[in-house]
Design a protein around this nucleic acid. Structure first.
Lengths: 161, 161
DNA sequence: GAAGAATTACTCGGATACTGCGTGTCCGAGTGTAACGGG
DNA sequence: CCCGTTACACTCGGACACGCAGTATCCGAGTAATTCTTC
């Protein structure tokens, strides 16, 4: 069980768009070249971000993608849910109701939720909470603390200077 | 991204073994029939629990699986790691070092860890902490709070009374 | 020289293949039990 | 009747297929800039 690589791609791309600044759309090809990614597959992930309202897309010759809103209004959870979908990490199949054990229990036994589901759900809530508490602006700020010239590097690498 | 169904199977099976009580091994076939699971595949998961030290296996005619230690010394995290492996949820490919952006950065820029990896790692720590704080005994206790006759049901269903 | 239409080049967007992991199954090695024969 | 031997039935353990989601790719619809023609 592990997240797809789309999440990593999406976060880095959002950060790069923020560092570039300006409202002009940036085409997928440039964003992909920035980190040596497959342009077509990156495009697929960016479309998910558009559907989630994190990006805006512009068609045509000068088209591309731009941020739909500032990074401090986007959480890591927003990105993960946009890419991976909002299905729960743990899927309870209610096997407690099946088999010789489940059949021996009267229906009343299942009015309360499955305790295994509850335990796994608690962990998932903690995971989501930790993701929601971190905005993309926080991640960006940490990067700039480590490498102050990051914005300049990105602008130069993508030829926007 | 979601956990395999092996986790659900393993937890329920461990609980059932605890409710059965007694140190006698229980064969996979009985445990699988308890929740209408595939015996062969359940066996595969139980072998992982043995490798992790949560179960003990006994071969031969009267063989099967038994708990290696009390439930209050097993955490939900132990089970998840045993089944899913201890690889991180988020795999950082270090794409920040690749492409036109990565190549423009001097090596010194990468001495500090990737901020995206840090953010995702924090969430994973929260997830693991929440799992580690819940022992299987806690889960068992909650089940018995909801259904006090649970132990009796299991013993009857598996013909140990 | 300016305005308008046709052309072109570039973009996103979705439909289409491929790969790897989760899922499921099968058969062999090993062991305790039970039956059996001999003392 | 008791003990040793043999055959057996049942178990775990690992090796072998299958299916689906993640991964990767390609081509068409659409748009803005550009060029060319005409007034």
């Amino acid at each position: 069980m592990r997240t797809g690589k789309g999440v990593e791609w999406a976060v880095h791309t959002l950060l790069n768009l923020a560092w570039l600044g300006g409202g002009e759309p940036v085409p997928t090809a440039q964003l992909a070249a920035g980190h040596e990614l497959s342009p077509s597959y990156l495009n697929k992930q960016l479309q998910l971000l558009v559907k989630a309202g994190l990006l805006e897309s512009a068609p045509g010759a000068t088209g591309g993608f731009r941020l739909a809103r500032p990074l401090d209004t986007m959480s890591m959870l927003d990105v993960v849910l946009a890419i991976e979908g909002d299905e729960p990490l743990f899927r309870c199949s209610e096997i407690r109701q099946c088999g010789t054990i489940g059949q021996r229990c009267p229906d009343g036994d299942f009015t309360r939720p499955c305790s295994v589901k509850i335990a796994m759900g608690r962990a998932e809530v903690a995971w989501r909470k930790a993701l929601a508490e971190q905005s993309l602006a926080d991640v960006q700020a940490r990067s700039e603390t480590y490498v102050p010239a990051m914005a300049k590097r990105v602008r130069q690498a993508l030829g926007r200077d």
